[in-house]
């Protein structure tokens, strides 16, 4: 069991998970979604070992924790890129051409929405709406909002994000 649990994570990482889980009472099933958010904030994704730790701490079957983690779009079960490029796919952005932006990014990065480049530089994703409709279409790069986007500008942005990896 403990060998299984430690797969892919270091003892230090296990301690980080434990520190996050200490915020939640043991056996409190209602904390599951919040706890997963907090653990994910540590690793930018949910390693398998983290799911097991959460399950044990909250007294839930692992299947339930996995079910929840895979149900919600906000959780990621695979490692994420160093940078994230998120295209807002809200209706207001859509009517202003968001789909074209996403296609451009996907083409330039060579991965589809939800995917990460093999060098773990960039994750491309969609979001349903972030409420910044006034400046749509909107692309978010590492939390920073870029409004009134065009295919040309987004293409330059992506080139910068991918190029950064090559120069390092």
């Amino acid at each position: 069991m403990s060998a299984d649990r430690e797969r892919g994570v270091t003892a230090r990482e296990l301690r980080r998970i434990a520190a996050v889980l200490a915020r939640y009472p043991q056996g409190d099933a209602g904390s599951l979604v919040n706890a997963l958010h907090d653990v994910q904030a540590e690793f930018r994704y949910l390693p398998e070992a983290a799911l097991c730790e959460v399950a044990d701490h909250l007294g839930l079957p692992r299947a339930q924790v996995y079910g929840v983690a895979s149900f919600y779009q906000g959780f990621h079960l695979e490692p994420r890129g160093e940078h994230t490029c998120t295209v807002c796919m809200g209706t207001a952005c859509h009517v202003r051409g968001a789909a074209r932006l996403l296609e451009t990014i996907e083409r330039d990065a060579g991965v589809g929405a939800g995917g990460t480049t093999p060098d773990l530089k960039l994750t491309v994703e969609e979001v349903n709406c972030v409420g910044a409709c006034a400046i749509g279409p909107l692309v978010i790069v590492d939390g920073e909002y870029h409004g009134h986007m065009t295919a040309d500008r987004v293409s330059r942005l992506v080139a910068k994000l991918l190029g950064e990896g090559a120069s390092r």
Binding site: G30, L32, V33, L36, Q64, G67, V68, F71, Q73, N128
Partner: peptide, 22 residues
Amino acid sequence: SRGGGAFVCGEASAMMASLEGR
């Protein structure tokens, strides 16, 4: 309680399930 990014959770009974950790 934070949502997990699922539109369906705006539906009342789905939201209850989510609050209960399901």
